[in-house]
Simulated scan of single mutants.
Amino acid sequence: MLIPTEGFGWVVGNRDVARSGHSECVISITAGSESGVDELVKEALEAGGEIVTEPGQKPWGYVGAFADLDGHVWQVTADWLS
Score class of each variant (00 low, 15 high):
G56L: 05
D38P: 02
V37H: 00
V26P: 03
G21S: 05
E34G: 05
L69N: 10
W80N: 11
P4R: 02
H22L: 12
A18G: 03
T30P: 02
Q57R: 12
G71H: 07
V41L: 12
L45S: 12
D70M: 09
L81V: 03
K42I: 02
E43H: 15
D68A: 06
V11P: 00
G32H: 09
E46D: 13
G64M: 01
F8G: 00
G13H: 04
E50K: 11
E54F: 07
W74H: 10
P4Q: 04
G32K: 10
H22R: 15
W74E: 02
R19I: 12
K42R: 13
I51M: 08
V26A: 00
G64S: 01
E6Y: 09
I51S: 06
D38Y: 06
H72S: 08
V73Y: 08
H22Q: 15
L81R: 13
C25Q: 11
H22C: 09
F8A: 06
V11S: 03
L69A: 11
L2Y: 15
T5R: 11
M1P: 11
W74M: 08
P4S: 00
E50S: 12
E54Q: 12
P4N: 01
G56P: 02
G7A: 04
I51L: 11
L81Y: 10
D68N: 08
G61M: 02
I29M: 11
W80A: 12
E50W: 05
T5W: 06
E39M: 07
E34D: 09
H22T: 13
E6R: 08
I51V: 10
D70Y: 07
T5M: 10
T5D: 10
V26Q: 05
R15S: 01
T77S: 03
V41G: 01
T53K: 06
E43L: 13
E43K: 15
L2F: 15
V41M: 01
E24T: 09
N14G: 07
L40R: 12
I3F: 14
T30G: 00
F66M: 04
S23V: 13
A18L: 05
K42S: 13
S23A: 14
V11K: 11
P59T: 04
L40E: 02
D68Y: 07
V17Q: 14
F66I: 08
E46Y: 05
W10F: 15
H22I: 07
S82F: 06
V12D: 00
I29T: 02
E6A: 10
G49D: 11
H22W: 14
G13Y: 07
H22K: 13
V26N: 03
V41C: 15
